[in-house]
Design a protein around this nucleic acid. Structure first.
Lengths: 148, 148
DNA sequence: CTCGGTGCAAATGCTTTGCAATGTC
DNA sequence: GACATTGCAAAGCATTTGCACCGAG
C-alpha cells in the first residue's frame, strides 16, 4: 500500500504535481532519512552544511514543506514557536508524551486515538484527515528531582 | 472544586507564588473574560488599546503567561507560529477540530480522550498534567466547494 | 527556451528583553 | 525601601520573501 521507498514515493509526488525533480530536494530527503527522532529545520540545515552541502536554508524549508505535504514527514508544534519534524514514511501512526520540565518526548501507539478522532470529526461533519495528540506531564526523572 | 470566580482564583495564585497584585493584571483578566472563543495576544492587546487601555504589549504577554500557568486560560498552537488562547476556567475540558481549508475551529468534548491520556502517561511513568488533541479535516462547507 | 527552483540577504511577524521609571509589599 | 512589574523600543528567532541567476523539462 505504501511505496517501498521514500525516494521513489517523493519522485512520484513531485511528478504528479508538476514540481521539478532537483538534486537539492533529494539531497534533503536523504539527510532527513538519516535523522533519527525529531529535528527542526535549522538543525537539519546546519547538519547538512557541516557535512559540506551547499543547499540553502530557504531550500530546506521549501523541501520540508513538500515532504510534509506528501506525508513523508510530519510537522509538529509542541507548544513552542519552532516546528519540529519527523519521518513518518512507513511507520505506524503514533502520538507523543512530552515532559514539561526537561522537554523529553516519548512516543506511543494506540489505535483508539484515531478512532476517537474519527468519531469526533464525523459528529461535526468534517472529512477526517489526521489527528495529533500531545500529552503533557512530568517524567519520572524530573519528578524525583523534587524542586518547583 | 474550582473557585467560584476567576479573579479570586487568580488573586490566590499570584499571592501563593509571591507575584504582585497589579491593576494591569486584572485589567487583562477582565478583557480575557470578555473574549469569546479563541484569541491571540496581539488581538487582545489591540482590543484593549482601542477600548482606551494603557497596558503595553509586553504586559499582555507576561500576564497571558501567568494566566496560562495557573490554568485560567489555555494556550494552543494550531500548526501556526502564533499562539492562540482561550479561557478554560470553569469550562469542560474539550478538544478541537480544525478545517484545513478555511481554518475554522470547532470544539468537542469526549471524556474518553482524557481518561485515555492519563493511562498513556502513567504507562510511560509520567505524572499526567494535561493533553491536547487536534483533529484536522475539511468542514462540510469546504467540501461542497469541490476544488482542491 | 521557459519558468520553477535556488541561494543569498533582507524582510516579516510573533514574542521576548533591556532598561529606566513606577508601584506593590 | 527593596525589588517585582511596567512601558517603550529595540532585539531575537523561526520562517518567508524578493530578486538575479540557474537548470529541469
Amino acid at each position: 500500500m505504501t511505496a517501498p521507498d521514500p525516494k521513489e514515493y517523493f519522485t512520484q509526488y513531485l511528478k504528479r504535481n508538476n514540481y521539478r525533480i532537483t538534486p537539492e530536494r533529494f539531497e534533503i530527503l536523504e539527510a532527513v532519512i538519516h535523522c533519527d527522532g525529531h529535528f527542526d529545520a535549522d538543525e537539519l540545515f546546519l547538519r547538512m552544511k557541516n557535512a559540506g552541502s551547499k543547499v540553502s536554508r530557504a531550500t530546506v524549508y521549501n523541501t520540508l514543506d513538500k515532504l510534509t505535504e506528501c506525508g513523508i514527514v510530519a510537522r509538529y508544534r509542541f507548544g513552542e514557536r519552532l516546528a519540529r519534524y519527523e519521518i513518518v514514511f512507513g511507520t505506524e501512526h503514533h502520538h507523543h508524551v512530552i515532559c514539561r520540565k526537561c522537554g523529553k518526548i516519548e512516543e506511543f501507539v494506540d489505535k483508539r486515538v484515531e478512532r476517537f478522532a474519527r468519531d469526533a470529526a464525523e459528529a461535526l461533519n468534517y472529512g477526517f484527515e489526521h489527528t495529533v495528540m500531545h500529552i503533557y506531564g512530568v517524567c519520572r526523572v524530573c519528578r524525583t528531582r523534587k524542586e518547583t
